[in-house]
Design a protein around this nucleic acid. Sequence first.
RNA 1: CUCCCCGUAGUUCAAUGGAUAGAACAACUCCCUUCUAAGGAGUAGAUGUAGGUUCGAUUCCUACCGGGGAGACCA
Length: 536
Amino acid sequence: MIKRIEEIIKKAVGEDAVFTVEVPPDQKMGDYMTNVALRVASTLKKSPEEAAREIAEKIIKADKGKMFSDVSVAGPGFINFFVNPKFFYEELSEMLRMGDEYGGSDEGNGKKVRIEYVSANPTGPIHIGNLRGGPIGETLARVFEKSGFKVLREYVHNDAGTQVEKLGETLWYWYEKLRGNEASFPDGGYRGDYGKEVAEAVAEALGPNLEKSQISEIIAFGLNHIFEENKETLKRIGITFDKIVSESNLISSGATEEVVSEMKSLNVTKERDGALWFVPNDEFLSDRESVIVRSSGQPTYFASDIAYHKEKFTSGYDLVFDIFGSNHHGHAPKLQALTKLFGFNPQNFIVLLYQYVRIKRGDEAVTMSKRAGTYVTAKEVLDEVGPDNVIFFLLMHSLTTHIDFDLDLAKKKSLENPVYYVQYAYVRAKRILEESGMEPMVSDLSLLNTQPELALIKKLSNFPEVVSMVCKTYEVHRITHYATELAREFHSFYEKTRVLVDDKDLSMARLNLVRSVVIVLANTLNLIGVSKPESM
RNA sequence: CUCCCCGUAGUUCAAUGGAUAGAACAACUCCCUUCUAAGGAGUAGAUGUAGGUUCGAUUCCUACCGGGGAGACCA
């Protein structure tokens, strides 16, 4: 619908005009609005209102009342459109015809996208901060798929480096304790109960008689154990990956070493204090120099990351996404600098940084440090409030927002959470369909002419536009907001309008409207991975 | 010290530089003989401070105040 209106406006003001068509804040204002007059007023040397009037007249003349039942100028120069209901009825039959395909498009045209997300360190269980990246990446992946892109979901298993050695020392400590030996907790070791749990698993699997010289076996087992648990946690919110890259593989396959020598020949490195540094040849990044090979000859994590990103950039994909926590913001520009090095368009490499989730219990903040072991694991949160709550909550907020997640409150209010509001709308709608006992059939949709009916149809019609918007802006929180709005519109309709009435034709038309609600709500919930309950 | 993000109702969050700053929860008032009241209709309530840019600023710029994060031969 928006695209059609844009075409009409372009005919009136010119192809290269920059403007937007949106749904106005209040339905009373119109079905759609445009700011085109405000945007072009200064170049036309006219007041916005004057420009708006002229453009509106042109549109009215060209349209001859076909698409719009009303075009008006309002406020400081907005042009508001009321669309002929006929077009909304057409959209409604489109929903009924397409079912779960509704909202999809071929916008992506088969383009290939790869998205890296979560990539939690295997030195401990995933915490709620790591988890935020999950629904973000997954929802984005689904939105792209729905829009005709081919998507690769990927994850980095960070199983090398000093952190892993620290994990080994921590596990050794617990292992010794378990078999009754004296041991002191290692410097910089990982606090938290899971160290003990993992050590117990080690003892069970490998026996209690390992020597310190066999610590690499403990580490390998521990890493895998934690990794498997983390994958299990992610599965609970519907996340699995197509491709998992491990740092140790990058090193052992020689990919890391290879990329280091390539960096040297590209003249973007220098030696200092016996170590090899990456020196981006970009003046804005002069303070981003960082070590890729230590003076000991060991490559850093960053070296492996370069190797990995080289693969990303040269794999023939059209768009590459990295979704990280905000603590990586210093890392992002360095990765950006790599695009040019490997001949990838920087505009097609998108790093999305999300802010951390602060966990509170009542007024008390819970700090999120793996090292100190004072954090709340994703598993605990999932156990306490359930996957639907967690997903919906994490997706309600824009990426740049710091989220406060009060566990006590979440538990207490779990029945009043917005996710239930949406799910309840779905259940109500389904129930009406069951109650009717009627098979779906074609009906005269133009019987749906009351205000609540039309408002609901209009809200439903916005769904493809929301999907398309997320595809362009990556603002996944739009989807949960849309879900809430649609649910509200339906609940309101439900109170005012009885669906199963004596008039058979009207009943059938309304049933078709309710069927559309079920379709669109289901499509929305599917995008974010929230379940669709049959009853509540 | 430098850099990044944030500061909006009592609370958690929305708002490409635009219309009367929106929801939800909490509070208050009403509404169940009819498809699930986990709902609906209504009332009250907010842009950290001080400047600047302009027709117009929650949004952009500057300073300050407050919170979170980053800056290692860590990852």
